[in-house]
């Protein structure tokens, strides 16, 4: 695999198969900052801030995993693998998604049991994994993807995202989860990704009734 450094970064100023996902990464990173603070509080107080931990888990399970990873695993990755069979970065990303789900399960179980130490351990493991994972996707995989996809394939991928966001998740669910992510960020003093107009435009680009 050649180095990705010579390839242009994802262009966040226009809607594309990769910019939509990079925009969502900014929200996930925002929630990771919140989760890191929740883990520190849990360790300090030996008590999980359970309401906020549960809200963050809902965003991680439904927005980060089901919706965002769903778009990657069922729409983008198959197209990239069809273009280049055995495309190794995709295989690595799939494996990390599986690993991330184990951390979500561990956090969920720890919240249910009120086990602050286990929650903090799983939360910090998840944060470390996802930050590195997002870095790999933004700086390596998506740079390659941007070069591999034709305009027609890019449009096909965007249509797949639309199906997941609206037909699978349901109208309004994406926005409800984004709202929770922003409320948590405000509560814990974390900057909101949506305060960037460019990111806001990407987060609201896909409507169930329209082609882009």
């Amino acid at each position: 695999m050649p180095c990705a450094d010579h390839l242009p970064p994802v262009d966040l100023s226009r809607v594309s198969a990769t910019s939509i996902l990079s925009g969502e990464h900014r929200v996930i990173l925002q929630v990771l900052d919140v989760v890191e603070k929740l883990a520190a509080l849990a360790l300090r107080d030996q008590r999980i801030p359970s309401e906020h931990a549960s809200q963050a888990l809902e965003v991680l399970a439904k927005f980060a995993d089901r919706c965002h990873h769903g778009k990657e695993e069922t729409v983008l990755f198959p197209v990239l693998e069809a273009i280049q069979p055995g495309f190794s970065p995709v295989q690595m990303m799939r494996a990390e998604h599986v690993e991330s789900r184990a951390f979500i399960r561990a956090m969920t179980e720890a919240v249910a049991a009120g086990d602050a130490a286990s929650y903090a351990r799983a939360a910090n493991g998840y944060v470390d994994l996802l930050r590195q994972h997002i870095h790999k996707e933004d700086d390596i995989l998506f740079r390659f993807a941007g070069q591999m996809l034709t305009p027609a394939q890019d449009a096909e991928v965007l249509d797949g995202y639309r199906r997941i966001e609206h037909d699978d998740m349901g109208d309004g669910t994406h926005e409800r989860l984004l709202g929770i992510a922003d409320t948590l960020a405000t509560t814990y003093g974390v900057p909101r990704a949506s305060d960037s107009q460019q990111i806001m435009d990407l987060l609201t680009a896909i409507c169930g009734c329209k082609k882009d």
């Binding site: 409800r176 984004l178 709202g179 922003d182 609201t204």
Partner: peptide, 18 residues
């Protein structure tokens, strides 16, 4: 206020698309 947090995204989407 929590409801508005989500509606902010929906309103932006509707304005952008419609």
């Amino acid at each position: 206020r929590e409801q508005l947090s989500a509606l902010r995204f929906l309103a932006a989407k509707v304005a952008r698309v419609h």
